[in-house]
Simulated scan of single mutants.
Amino acid sequence: MEIEQIKNEVSKVINDLLKEHPQKPGSVFVIGCSSSEIAGGKMGKNSSAEIGKAVFETAYKILKKKKLYLACQCCEHLNRVLVVEEECADKFGYDEVKVVPWLHAGGSFATAAYAGFKKAVVVEHVKASAGIDIGDVLIGMHLKDVAVPVHPEQKTVGEAHVVCAWCRPKLVGGERAKYE
């Protein structure tokens, strides 16, 4: 799998989602990623530091330019905790936990984020306004309550299946309520 192709596919998925469902500056955008799945292997069995770094750097560059906070989900060996910038954790009051992700516990994507953020911290939970799941790693626990799935035109990154979501506010009220 060519790294430039992976970067292009990640870029396309993110830009398609944000074009269709723009996010407010300062919102959290979560990404879960299996480099093993991108490379055509089985999740957790073929981790690639190079692929994880390519996905992180591409996503971070795009989202930072849009003034969105990136939350990078670790694998299940670290209970799907997230790597974020300290500024994000402080802004939203996320409690920091102590762990350093690495290739075989956290995954290559989270490891790249921990090394690549200006001041990385790890938190247990976020409530993201949108997100991308690359390789069926299950990001739903880190999205706001009403997630709306989006099926992007770019349906894969490498060999990994991609699903996206954005979150809308809850609709409350009864038969007299108006929403627009």
Rank of each mutant, 00 (worst) to 15 (best):
E4G: 06
Q5R: 15
I6S: 11
I6N: 11
E9M: 04
E9G: 10
I14P: 09
L18P: 06
P22F: 06
P22H: 12
Q23M: 13
Q23S: 08
Q23K: 10
P25M: 12
P25Q: 15
G26R: 04
S27E: 15
S27G: 07
S27L: 05
V28F: 07
V28P: 07
F29P: 02
G32Q: 01
C33P: 04
C33A: 11
C33V: 00
S35H: 03
S35F: 02
E37R: 09
G40Q: 12
G40Y: 03
G41Q: 10
K42W: 08
K42V: 05
G44Q: 14
K45W: 01
K45C: 11
K45Y: 01
N46Q: 14
N46L: 08
A49I: 01
E50V: 03
I51C: 14
K53M: 00
K53L: 08
A54R: 02
F56E: 10
F56W: 04
F56H: 04
E57P: 08
Y60P: 00
Y60R: 12
I62M: 00
L63I: 09
K64M: 06
Y69P: 04
A71E: 10
C72W: 04
C72R: 01
Q73R: 01
E76T: 05
L78E: 12
L78H: 00
L78F: 03
L82H: 03
L82Q: 11
L82Y: 04
L82F: 01
L82N: 13
E86L: 06
E87C: 00
C88S: 10
A89V: 03
G93A: 03
G93T: 07
D95V: 05
E96A: 05
E96N: 09
E96H: 08
K98P: 00
K98W: 02
K98H: 10
K98A: 12
A105M: 07
A105Q: 11
G106S: 08
G106H: 05
S108K: 03
F109N: 11
A110M: 03
A112H: 03
F117L: 01
F117C: 02
K118E: 15
K119Q: 15
V121D: 14
E124L: 07
V126Y: 09
S129A: 15
A130R: 09
G135Q: 14
G135S: 08
V137D: 14
G140D: 13
M141R: 09
M141G: 15
M141Y: 06
K144F: 06
K144Q: 15
D145Y: 04
V146C: 11
A147N: 11
P152M: 08
T156V: 05
V157Y: 04
G158K: 05
G158Q: 05
E159G: 09
A160F: 04
A160C: 01
H161Y: 04
C164T: 06
P169F: 09
P169L: 06
K170S: 13
V172P: 00
G174L: 05
R176A: 11
Y179Q: 13
Y179T: 00
